[in-house]
Amino acid sequence: MENNRRNFLKFAGVTVLGLGSLSLLDGLTSDDVIASAGQTSAEEIYKKGANALTAKRWGMVVDTRIITAAICRKMENACHQTHNVPDHANKRHEIKWIWDTEYKHAFPEKTDLFLAERFEHLPIPVFCNHCANPPCVQACPTQATFQRADGLVLMDFHRCIGCRFCMAACPYGSRSFNFRDPREAIKNENPEFPTRMKGVVEKCNFCAERLAVGKEPACVEASDGALIFGDLEDPQSEIRKLLKENYAIRRKQNLGTNPSVYYIV
């Protein structure tokens, strides 16, 4: 019911904005929805699963002291296998949720002429920062990308119109677009997670579907301890303890996006 009323108000808002031609459609739709809700006699409740992991604001710490190329491969495979990320031959159509890059690309504003040798060719895993102040969410014209109460920045693939405004807005290049049907490029389909269709944007979701059933993100599981996941707002959490004891940096902090991913260097 609450949803119906909200939808109705949104419709009303549109109508007020002078798009009168829509008012007809609006009347029909909201009547239908209300009527169907009226027929419902059953008690319906939506809730979280009993073992779901919850947090005030999810965050990640990447321990670059542990990272190796092999670990990066394992994490990437785990993520892309879990989420049915296609592997297109054409680089223009490439889709990636997590990948590794050199320090100078991960932190282009922090490049140094005399960089610590270890960082010269160290693979740095990069993925969506799940910013507290996400420019992509601000840009999206349909709220297809949105921020959940626990800080996750997610995609609603059902709603995305494929305008790619979010990709222009993301200062980290974390988003990919389905330039073609992804299905033919998925080798081993994971039946428990949907694929995408052509024409929508996708990105790392911090494994929202795994958190819901009490599991940590797939990359964290595959990381041999290089990735640590937890609640940034909980002073007792493991990641907060790590951040208290170690110097950590974030990507492009100067832009004010407030990323939730920290890199211990």
Binding site: N3, A42, E43, E44, I45, Y46, K47, K48, G49, A52, F146, R148, D150, L154, D156, H158, A208, A212
Partner: peptide, 18 residues
Amino acid sequence: DGWRDRTVRDAMRVYEVN
């Protein structure tokens, strides 16, 4: 539709009825 919105947008992945 309800399942999809609650699951994707609100993290309410369990539907209880009767």
